[in-house]
Design a binder for these strands. Structure first.
Lengths: 156, 156
DNA sequence: CTAGTTGCAAATGTTTTGCAGTCTC
DNA sequence: GAGACTGCAAAACATTTGCAACTAG
């Protein structure tokens, strides 16, 4: 069971910062452990948290998420300008998002690219990069196939 | 006078899309022609537009900006997650933003990087990139100097 | 017990929408 | 003159905050 290590990480990080382990925090932490993509809007986090613990309030979820961000447990990202923020557990490796504007899926892309950007800016421009927010909007491989299929004769 | 070419571009693009040239649209277009960085929040666009044409409404500014985006005349960017969207005139070349979290300045960074990302994703992952949103948060060269100065003995 | 947390409700801030009057073409 | 646009007011979202009650340590 990975759940134990999971719970331990949460507890330890909270305690280290002088915070408490509470029901709502456990619920939000669990909500963020999504099998699929793992990019949830606050609405989704609220819904999942309430599954585990009916009564958790939206305001609490916002507060918990802000705390998790501060503690480095979770990461927000603005997948659409103007739209709601999406949340995921903080990954140790730097990555960016590939969002398909057709099916809405969000993939992670891990690689050296972010590090490269960082170094380039530091060396060449004296800019010290702290956080790199990179989101690429486009069509994923599957949707490109679907489009071709649809034209040829109606897949699906 | 660059203003003429400017006005002509606006008129032509609007007409091509079956849209009309109106006072508010002219005002918003002018507002976006900032000498400095050129990254304005909607609030700022409203203020500048009202300078040129008292009475323009916030709602109209939102509608005009959305239209400009659709026509490829303007580009929104979310410089801070959760915060208001910033607008600038659409540039022909792809660029991204370097935002200093100390002084708040926003620089443009033009280069081949965005094109590189695009190609890499297309070739290696079958992902067709349409728009690339890249914002780097950190400290600009000036602020890094200031910090050193402050430590040494209080610049400013 | 005591301070950190929470739920509830109300406030804030941003963006969107409905509609009747206005202005461009 | 017809339909695209605008201003005004109200609505729809997203997020934050104040506060009294609750609870983890």
């Amino acid at each position: 069971m990975e759940d134990d290590a999971d719970a331990r990480e949460l507890t330890a990080t909270l305690r280290a910062g002088g915070h408490r382990l509470t029901g709502p925090r456990r619920a939000v932490w669990a909500a963020l452990a999504v099998d699929g993509d793992g990019h949830l809007t606050v609405d989704e986090v609220v819904a999942r948290s309430q599954d585990a613990r009916p009564g958790v309030d939206r305001a609490t979820v916002y507060r918990v998420l802000a705390l998790f961000e501060e503690l480095g447990l979770a990461r927000p990202s603005q997948l659409d300008a103007g739209g709601p923020v999406h949340w995921e557990r903080a990954h140790p490796d730097e990555h960016f998002h590939l969002r398909c504007t057709r099916c809405g899926s969000v993939e992670h892309h891990v690689g050296t690219l972010v590090a490269t950007i960082r170094e380039h800016l530091d060396d060449g421009h004296g800019f010290r990069a702290d956080t790199v927010e990179l989101t690429v909007h486009g069509h994923c491989a599957t949707c490109r196939d679907d489009e071709r299929g649809t034209v040829r004769g109606g897949v699906r």
